[in-house]
Design a protein around this nucleic acid. Sequence first.
DNA 1: GAACCCAGTG
DNA 2: CACTGGGTTC
Lengths: 262, 262
Amino acid sequence: MKIATWNVNSIRTRQDIVANWLQQNNIDVLCLQETKVIDKDFPRTRFEELGYHVYISGQKAYNGVAIFSLTPLTEVSAGFTPIIGDHAEDFDLQKRVITGVVGDIRLVNLYVPNGGDIANDKYKYKLQWLKLLKEYLKTFQEKEEYQMCVCGDFNIALEDRDIYNAQGTEKHIMSSPTEREALKEVLSIGLQDAFRKFTSETGHFSWWDYRAAGFQRDRGWRIDHHYLTSELYQKANNCWIDREPRKLVKPSDHAPVIVEIA
Amino acid sequence: MKIATWNVNSIRTRQDIVANWLQQNNIDVLCLQETKVIDKDFPRTRFEELGYHVYISGQKAYNGVAIFSLTPLTEVSAGFTPIIGDHAEDFDLQKRVITGVVGDIRLVNLYVPNGGDIANDKYKYKLQWLKLLKEYLKTFQEKEEYQMCVCGDFNIALEDRDIYNAQGTEKHIMSSPTEREALKEVLSIGLQDAFRKFTSETGHFSWWDYRAAGFQRDRGWRIDHHYLTSELYQKANNCWIDREPRKLVKPSDHAPVIVEIA
DNA sequence: GAACCCAGTG
DNA sequence: CACTGGGTTC
């Protein structure tokens, strides 16, 4: 079973690229971020025609997440609130979380806030959001028996080997110590990085800035992840980044990442 | 000698279409309107590489005119003011006029104001502008011996046969009686419509609205013209509209019009 | 319907 | 650099 995650930076702009990619790769589940569209305008039939069940939680212009799955999902919900209650309401104004169950896997698809820069109010928002995320995931663990696959665009490179150049990481958004700690705190509930089960060296990235020819010069960051609970981590066969769609004309700035489960 | 006029609705968006068209047609002079770009950002080298001398008068976002010529132009100027003086200054804030001399022809390239609708202040502006245009053209006639070719997007269909459907022309911008009279007043200095020397019937248009499938249904207007002084009018061999570029993807809403002079 | 600008986000 | 939406023009 192949579960992919891909920040598409607008599903309407990228629908040809995504549809072609799905037809060329045997993907069971695709988790999308930054769909940037309200639900009524999501090009859902385009993907249903390819055999996928489509689950979406979008808003206008920003954020937005979706899951495409060949088999129907159960226990689908969007946002923190349905799981942890009303104190998360403010954070659900931005559509960044969608979840459902496939087989014995609780799939959680995330678009973690970027944070702007570390002197920004948005950075505080990111840290608070990660706190809620931990509460959210723990709630699932307490009330369910499913293994978990928590994937998406985390906007965090956990280690220096996840960045093309480790200079200045301390002050840089996506690599500063406080956000790295906040993410480790989330992972402490028992989640492991599927990609690092198979590949230890640097030079593997999932995002390259549009600016300054970032992709051509391979100035990338690995910020899109699959974090798995232990049983699922054991079953993972492979995990890789597909750079091909990043080479096309008008690409997303992110490449899809795929994990294969036995 | 072939002189073409073409409202390209942004030269930056249309540069491939225009360059290909120039390579496939032996055009000596091309008059462009709605270039929509300030002079420093005009893609001038693209057309110089095709052998053209490039003369431009542009502004940001709106209007803008240009002339491409295989032979250099002389006595080039932009706007009314250099010819008729400071009282036209306000009208030169919008870049709608450029002129130069090729051989024995004074070429005048115009982008006449659209006017919005007939109850609009912009309609008054259009009428005042046409008054200045007459003064401008007469000034050339008084101080020069050149024949004149006055061409461009006039935003006026002079007769009902120039419109796909003559219903409601009286109240419609581009065909209302007052603006038609204002244009006839300009032509009264001795200018004749090159296109009508060769073609009398209706069904020949140079502009089709992007909306409501205007081109597919051939709901067009003939608003792009070459007006010639009598000697030049005698020498005109042919005048036609090339609809081909209007069929391409992402076309201008106007088609080029070409006059051939013996 | 399709250009443009501008502001906001990444 | 590239997305979105909102305003404006034709």
